[in-house]
Design a protein around this nucleic acid. Sequence first.
DNA 1: TCCGGCAAAAGATCAGATTTATTTCGGAAT
DNA 2: ATTCCGAAATAAATCTGATCTTTTGCCGGA
Lengths: 241, 241
Amino acid sequence: MAALHDDVLDALGRRIVGGELAAGAVLTLDDIDTEYDVSRSVSREAVRVLASMGMVASRRRVGLTVQPRTRWQVFDPRLIRWRLDSEDRAAQLRSLGELRSGFEPVAAGLAAVRATPEQCGALTAAVGDMVVHGRAGDLEAFLAADIAFHRVLLEASGNEMLAALDGVVAEVLAGRTHHHLMPTRPKGEAIDLHVEVARAVRAGDAVAARAAMESIIAEATDAVVADATTSTILGGDGEHA
Amino acid sequence: MAALHDDVLDALGRRIVGGELAAGAVLTLDDIDTEYDVSRSVSREAVRVLASMGMVASRRRVGLTVQPRTRWQVFDPRLIRWRLDSEDRAAQLRSLGELRSGFEPVAAGLAAVRATPEQCGALTAAVGDMVVHGRAGDLEAFLAADIAFHRVLLEASGNEMLAALDGVVAEVLAGRTHHHLMPTRPKGEAIDLHVEVARAVRAGDAVAARAAMESIIAEATDAVVADATTSTILGGDGEHA
DNA sequence: TCCGGCAAAAGATCAGATTTATTTCGGAAT
DNA sequence: ATTCCGAAATAAATCTGATCTTTTGCCGGA
């Protein structure tokens, strides 16, 4: 399973995100052919995708110009992944968090109106898992249940654009857990809020679902901010290269 | 300015969005070469981008399989445009509207905290234009000012993902105006709310900015719903095939 | 019935020809 | 002598047709 052009795409994407290839830098297909020892169509296909993400622009006689960040399609999951893997991680998580505070309450409100019985069941099941694993202190299992909960909720919103953001939410939750921005044992009140969202959705209470979700996000934001403050006091968060 | 592969990409994208090529349908590069009378790398590059948007998946010996909608990268501006140009327009506008009700209030709140003096000035100027053209009943000029207002606000949020949604908002606003989901003359109260957002941002009042923006969206949603209801009563909205 | 190898189908890759936009150089007019 | 215009040179993307590789379905034998 080679996927040569995919390798080149990934390598170039990371170099651009990482800043090695800054905005305004120019390179040619020939450079890429030589550097990665691939043929024309391989470099071309990689570059074509990069161009479709707004990261480079190609002009005859000039070459490929790296575009400024304002042109990037920042909702592309690949780009999000690259940024999360780079020194940009903190900024990316902050952006995603702020975004989430906007759309997740809306999704909760819509889900209360539109969720099918099956989705209500899945939501309840996920909450049950969160309670169990939260009490047991199994962070990975808790994370999985948390991700499942939010995924079902977004899907139940009946809005395909909100549903498409499930990957974003999963990344944020996973990032928080794996970079130790979570308490060693999930807080009881956070879990209670998830229980409340599930209840409100089952009851068809959009206002309550929305309010509970807003509290979840607010609580999460506070937790991250508190941790960041602590890290700063302690002299860094250990994430920078 | 040929851009052969871009033509093929556009044609294929529209066929998939339009439903002519439904999920599960398979086609081969050879089919594309023949049908559009282009050579391999042209079809390949078009397909590569389509694959990066989650619309098709390619497998050796099988060909290109059109993917179900749940796999699509629905935040890709190209896909949004295709959907807005297709019979899917109503659903796309609804999705975008719901999404907007989530993130625009957040953006307003952040802008109140982060907007630079220049951005405050641009916001005030845009609001001024809205007032003038709204009173004059010049819908196109009003639309342009409206779009400018929201663009500046999103940019002032200091969050590049929110800023990247400016195209989405512009499409929604333009779609509403051009498909006559707006009153012939913009409502005074809607304009007043924009004035209030600008004032709150200048004053650094995040809570007020957020609240005013929520009112703007709610007002807009009501207007569209009211129109849709009227259209239904009148026997259809003219958008269905 | 099950296993292994053969052959075809289709995507993946390659080397090379073509097109186009920029730049530069030469000549003429000022 | 300088500036302006146009044509030729050139660099780089774009496109083409052929070749390679992998996957899968089929067939024959155990």
